[in-house]
């Protein structure tokens, strides 16, 4: 496995996350076969690949949501591979937005927003969040299932911004949403990057991801098979299309 060379494309920052030889299993099936990647503070990277390649599992394995895992995941210098799931978010200042959004149907919008515990300093206040997502304030007393898909996606992101998380794991946030909402989400990610958040995007929508990311990792069969810098994207399109085409 090629050790990623020191990146030249992004501004030098401290290594925030490094994943080495991450293996993960669901029951008997071995899903990740040694994932490696790095992330510096303030970077946005994407995990690209076909369905079932192991992108979502990579996020879940980092959080300890698989049956078994091995290798190394270091966030801000802490090794988290052996920690129980509930301690990982606190130690790594991790915010997780799962596939399908994970909105709780039995909770109101506001309860959903207030659910994740505070992890550290510097989270957005509820007022700030409602300023950023005015729609959510309007529907805050409805239950989680009685708001639109776009609103659900906003809520799923908003609730982790409240906690003071600095590293955001966002899984397929554009899936099933109208183009106009995808555009809004794009602006929002840009905004979050400006504010210094570090972000991993798992994406199908390559056009959405390409404009935002510093770097792309291509995952196939539970391994990182390629790494493409954001600036190098034009030249690599053909390669990428080959990876992603069915």
């Amino acid at each position: 496995m090629a050790e990623p060379a020191a990146t030249t494309t992004s501004e030098a920052g401290e290594a925030l996350l490094s994943v080495r030889d991450l293996n993960a299993y669901y029951g008997e099936s071995h899903v990740l076969h040694g994932i490696d990647f790095d992330l510096r503070k303030g970077e946005v990277v994407t995990l690209l690949g076909r369905n079932g390649a192991g992108r979502t599992t990579t996020l879940r394995a980092m959080l300890g949501l698989v049956d078994r895992r091995s290798g190394s995941v270091k966030v801000r210098g802490h090794e988290i591979i052996d920690l129980p799931t509930h301690r990982i978010a606190h130690l790594g200042l991790l915010g997780y937005c799962p596939e399908e959004r994970g909105i709780f149907a039995s909770l109101s919008v506001e309860e959903n927003l207030m659910l994740p515990p505070t992890l550290g300093e510097g989270g957005m206040s509820v007022e700030e969040i409602y300023r950023m997502f005015p729609n959510l304030e309007e529907v805050r007393h409805r239950t989680g299932m009685r708001i639109s898909g776009g609103e659900q996606q906003m809520l799923a992101i908003a609730r982790i911004l409240r906690t003071g998380a600095r590293l955001l794991l966002l899984d397929e946030i554009t899936e099933g949403l109208a183009p106009v909402i995808v555009k809004t989400l794009g602006r929002m990610i840009g905004d979050l990057k400006q504010r210094g958040f570090t972000i991993i995007l798992v994406e199908q929508n390559f056009r959405f991801a390409s404009r935002l990311a510093d770097r792309h990792y291509v995952i196939e069969h539970g391994k990182v098979v390629d790494r493409i810098d954001g600036t190098d994207l034009e030249n690599s399109m053909e390669r990428l299309n080959r990876y992603l085409s069915v």
Binding site: T85, H86, R87, H90, Y96, P98, P117
Partner: peptide, 15 residues
């Protein structure tokens, strides 16, 4: 209630 609905995610939030 959230824990009843989706314990995994609640756990991932740090509870």
């Amino acid at each position: 209630r959230a824990g009843v609905e989706n314990p995994e995610l609640v756990q991932a939030f740090g509870i």
